[in-house]
Design a protein around this nucleic acid. Structure first.
Length: 425
RNA sequence: GGAGGAAUGGCAGAGCUGGUUUAAUGCACCGGUCUUGAAAACCGGCGUACCGAAAGGUACCGGGGGUUCGAAUCCCUCUUCCUCCGCCA
């Protein structure tokens, strides 16, 4: 969530940001509501502190009187303190109410978009930041979409997944499973070479963790929930990995912190069915290698560009046509200030598939995480960033469609040492 | 799953028969003196959040609640860790 002090310092900046996210005029009053409520918080806090200070002072006196055996004087002061106590507990309740109301309001405020974020409502309004400069592969009319190829070559089986679990849980088999494992290793090695430390995090997280990175309360319905233990299945490694740094105060020379992690990701994707989600285009469980960075605020946007370069290199090694989009205000994630999406061209489906999303959250997550660093001007919030590098399922979809030949699916050069075969047949 | 013990500031570790503790002491860390330099020694500093221009105040001793004029200290509850037993890769 946004910092109160930042909202107070530049309310116009927040209002401009909300407009870019297509907030209606009447919804903008939330900014003034927050500031007014915070004023209330401050004055209540001050009153309470003064009352408690008085109570502490009197209590100390009573203690002294008891020691001097002046019982009667002590007794009369007791009554006084009793009154203060009542006042204090009233103020405490009031403060609690104000605070929870304030937090609730703050939870409804999204991050302020970066100045470069274009305005717009839908993904049609996203800006093409980097277009594909080469030619798009033409496969001809007998080209098969990946779900048909999967059947021909036994790469994955969605019907089998239905039997075991339900729709959207693919079972990868044989060389398909091997390809999956090869891609994971390849992505992890790329990240490690680029200086990211590998972690294997838990796949289930508690409420505090999900709240700190912003999945709760915003995306509650997106996560699978284990009721008996009050745990959530992770929708991305971002959640457990970023939370490694919850409640941490860093030194300035700890930056940059670079982490990578492979995890399966679980997403309910409730209500999304139809032709455009066929095959691996949208599934409930998929594998992903994530990169996470924690940065000094002055350097976070340089970091973001570096992460873009990292993803580009991987896609180039995989020989996949890709383009980069800068998300518009309407498409931008709730917690993000600036997001670039990577799309690869899936030549049989003749459409672009999103395979990576690279974002700078600035201090939005750090505020909930209480992730700070010591600076000369006191402790300040760090910036958090993350990106997929990469999400597997759709990469596999594009890879097998684009590389289909009558002899089988040709594995890109750079991947062959990982798969152990050059043609999937 | 059963029984017992524990949880204190970056770490170690007192306090736990309630009132000079707004948490001793040591180590680590930062600044200074000394030194050609370093070490040692000595001096000083050294948690987080909120309110306040500042002085200062308030809260926090695993989380929540309670008793009391007053709680790190007493009571209840939850969580986590350790030891033993059981079960099981």
């Amino acid at each position: 969530m946004l910092e109160l002090n930042a909202i107070r310092a530049e309310p116009e900046r927040l209002i401009e940001g909300l407009k870019k996210r297509n907030f209606q005029e009447e919804e903008l009053s939330i900014v003034n509501q927050i500031i007014a409520l915070d004023d209330q918080r401050k004055s209540t806090q001050t009153d309470l502190d003064q009352t408690l200070a008085e109570r502490n002072r009197l209590s100390k006196e009573i203690g002294d009187l008891f020691k001097q055996n002046k019982r009667e004087e002590a007794e009369s002061m007791r009554a006084q303190v009793g009154e203060l106590k009542e006042q204090a507990s009233e103020m405490e309740d009031q403060l609690k109410n104000i605070q929870s109301e304030l937090t609730e309001l703050l939870y409804t405020v999204p991050n302020i978009p970066h100045p470069s974020v274009p305005s717009g409502n839908t993904d049609d309004d996203n800006e093409v930041f980097k277009a594909w400069s080469g030619e798009l592969p033409e496969l001809g009319d007998d080209a098969k979409p990946h779900w048909e190829l999967a059947k021909d070559y036994g790469i994955f089986d969605l019907e089998l997944g239905v039997k075991i679990t339900g729709a959207g849980f693919p079972v990868y088999r044989g060389k398909g499973a091997k390809l999956q494992r090869a891609l994971i290793s390849f992505f992890l090695d790329e990240a490690t070479e680029a200086g990211y430390d590998e972690v294997i995090p838990p796949l289930l997280v508690n409420e505090n963790t999900a709240r700190a990175t912003g999945q709760l309360p915003d995306k509650e319905g997106q996560m699978y929930y284990v009721n008996e233990d009050n745990l959530y299945l992770i929708p991305t490694a971002e959640v457990p990995v970023t939370n490694i740094y919850r409640d941490v105060i860093l030194e300035e020379d700890d930056f940059p912190i670079k982490l990578t992690g492979y995890t399966p990701c679980f997403r309910r994707e409730a209500g999304s069915y139809g032709a455009h989600v066929r095959g691996l285009n949208r599934v409930h469980q998929f594998d992903k290698v994530e990169i996470v960075r924690i940065e000094h605020p002055d350097r976070s946007y340089d970091s973001l560009m570096e992460m873009l370069g990292h993803v580009e290199r991987i896609l180039e090694k995989l020989e996949l046509p890709y383009r980069i989009l800068r998300l518009c205000g309407g498409d931008l994630g709730f917690t993000s200030a600036l997001t670039f999406d990577f799309e690869v061209y899936s030549a049989a489906q003749k459409r672009w598939l999103e395979v990576s999303s690279v974002s700078n959250f600035e201090t939005y997550q750090a505020n909930r995480l209480k992730l700070r660093y010591r600076s000369e001007n006191g402790n300040r919030l760090a910036h958090t960033l993350n990106g997929s590098a990469l999400a597997l399922a759709r990469i596999v979809a594009a890879l097998i469609e684009n590389n289909q030949t009558p002899e089988g699916i040709v594995i890109p050069e750079k991947l062959r040492s990982y798969t152990g075969f050059s043609v999937l047949s």
